[in-house]
């Protein structure tokens, strides 16, 4: 099998060491009813880096990134995104902040009633109202070319395969030039070849758009291919944080069960 592991001396990895904090999360707690999903989680995301959050299903990974864009409100703790405390923002300020964040949903979340073109135009028309019709078309075409699906312009989401839906969804998030990308299980439900293609795309997006990304996954191959740094969640708590090599050489049985 080809080695997809990200090289530690890549330009992006070096950038992340010197650049500023994009996200800082401190003491985050979130529960639903009597079940506590996140227990005192803290993390930092630096400019230009890919942070992979690893953990088994139900460990609170998706809840964590939903708190970052305030789709969920944490019970305790603070989240600073681009220097702004997310939970103290009013609706207008939150919308302004959300314009700088791209969110790739697990199922793609493409709008069923719209064509691929309309799906891409939808955020573009609302986020940047100054754009002319010509500029919108150019940006849509460019985003589709970047994900290798320029021919899908007039297709409906129901005519696309799982991998294509993920790519189009990625195109819809990058079309507005976000500073931060949040990927929720980007390779779940895809075959190994398509998963590798999506992982490669994540790295391309990082290089081309200089985004800082949080990638939620339980797919080790995706983590190896994309991670500059890994944070492992176990039962709603940070279990270990470090470089991919730290995890690969660990003797901890829980970590080993992931990397075997």
């Amino acid at each position: 099998m080809k080695n997809l592991q990200k090289q530690p001396n890549s330009p992006v990895s070096n950038e992340s060491k010197v650049a500023g904090k994009m996200i800082e999360m401190t003491g985050l707690r979130k529960g639903f009813g009597t079940q506590e999903v996140l227990k005192d989680v803290s993390l930092k995301l630096f400019s230009g880096e890919n942070l992979v959050i690893l953990g088994k299903s139900g460990s609170g990974k998706s809840v964590l990134i939903q708190c970052i864009v305030r789709l969920l409100i944490p019970d305790e703790g603070t989240i600073e995104v681009l220097g702004r405390d997310v939970n103290s923002l009013n609706k207008q300020e939150l919308d302004e902040l959300r314009k700088k964040i791209g969110f790739l949903f697990q199922g793609g979340a493409l709008y069923d009633s719209m064509t691929v073109k309309e799906n891409l135009e939808f955020p573009l028309r609302r986020i940047n109202k100054q754009l002319t019709e010509k500029e919108i078309i150019e940006k849509v075409n460019e985003a589709l070319e970047n994900v290798g699906l320029a021919e899908a312009l007039n297709k409906m989401p129901s005519q696309l395969s799982g991998g294509m839906r993920k790519r189009i969804s990625l195109a819809r998030t990058i079309v507005v030039d976000p500073l931060i990308m949040l990927y929720d299980e980007p390779t779940t439900g895809l075959d190994p070849v398509t998963s590798d293609e999506i992982s490669a795309l994540i790295n391309e997006v990082q290089k081309k758009y200089k985004t800082a990304s949080i990638i939620i996954t339980h797919d080790i191959e995706c983590a190896k291919a994309t991670a500059d740094r890994i944070l492992m969640l176990q039962d709603g708590e940070v279990y270990k944080e470090g470089k991919i090599a730290d995890f690969q050489h660990s003797n901890d049985p829980i970590i080993k069960s992931f990397f075997k």
């Binding site: 939903q66 864009v69 789709l71 919308d95 302004e96 959300r98 314009k99 964040i101 969110f103 949903f105 697990q106 199922g107 979340a109 493409l110 709008y111 069923d112 009633s113 939808f122 955020p123 609302r126 986020i127 507005v176």
Partner: peptide, 20 residues
């Protein structure tokens, strides 16, 4: 049914995070 399925497939969340 339409809005319900949009909720289930996270389309409403997608709309919200794209500042709509």
């Amino acid at each position: 049914a339409e809005l319900g399925s949009m909720k289930v497939s996270e389309q409403i969340d997608a709309m919200e995070v794209s500042a709509t």
